[in-house]
Design a binder for these strands. Sequence first.
DNA 1: CTCTTACAGTTTAATATTAAACTATCTCTG
DNA 2: CAGAGATAGTTTAATATTAAACTGTAAGAG
Lengths: 150, 150
Amino acid sequence: MTQSTSKNRDQDEALSAYVKLMRAAGSITHRVHGNLAEEKLSVSQFGVLEALYHLGPVCQRDLARKILKSSGNLTMVVRNLEQRKLVKRTRSSDDRRYYQIQLTTAGRDLIERLFPAHASRIADEFKLLDQSELEALQRICRKLGLQVEG
Amino acid sequence: MTQSTSKNRDQDEALSAYVKLMRAAGSITHRVHGNLAEEKLSVSQFGVLEALYHLGPVCQRDLARKILKSSGNLTMVVRNLEQRKLVKRTRSSDDRRYYQIQLTTAGRDLIERLFPAHASRIADEFKLLDQSELEALQRICRKLGLQVEG
DNA sequence: CTCTTACAGTTTAATATTAAACTATCTCTG
DNA sequence: CAGAGATAGTTTAATATTAAACTGTAAGAG
């Protein structure tokens, strides 16, 4: 049963990698977003502001894919941000199914104020990796993240 | 401003790694847990069953740390599993603050039935990494996951 | 012993999240 | 153009999640 045990070994190694990957991602998220509550922002709300900051105006579908949440949830997240005048929704004129979501001036001010500390916390998390590890991590995660859904 | 630009470059690289790490973890979670709904199990419930399966009886605090959820949430998750007779809670006699949570026979049967397909889905996710990548990923994620909280 | 402090778990109230059904719009095919 | 199917976003109802205040138990200092 050489084949079978080799397969089991692969599976065990994959499981171990999976657990470590999840723990790393989870604990980093936890630490990086720990002081978001001070601004009365949820992780998803912050994620949307950040995405708009980096990508410019996009539609809700793209935001949902970006922050890995359901479209229904995005309706709620964007609505709450809109009520706080942090984002603006405008229907696309050439395809009226779409809304273009974009930062308001207040939203841009907020994310510009929060982003430096955010980036610095992230940099701290990765500080103990050397350059080659940082590159390897990115290459590997790109492979893992790109696989087909479903 | 050599120092400053080098620092910015480090920060950009960390940000890029962070995004890729989160995307990899998120999309893998999504795919791996995609068919948990069929068993009427939430991701957290499955995580608890799996932890108990691998660790044996543990207290709720340890379960909370394992699945990265709040203690309040664990009370709820464990209660729901208990109502479905999948786990059993017994107060520790030497320190009555603790509950020992353990699988019932039904709980063990369930996780033993679900785990093989679960492990196989995970193995599929990591299949496109070669051995050295798998090792590098684990080593790097261990470093990242172990940093001090707060 | 008793007071203080710490800790495991619970409760509560507010919010976030999801799946699924639904509306509105677009696109393609004939 | 009409109808079928796809797509963006919304709603709804059920559940999950959290922070914070709380209860009960333990441990250590004086």
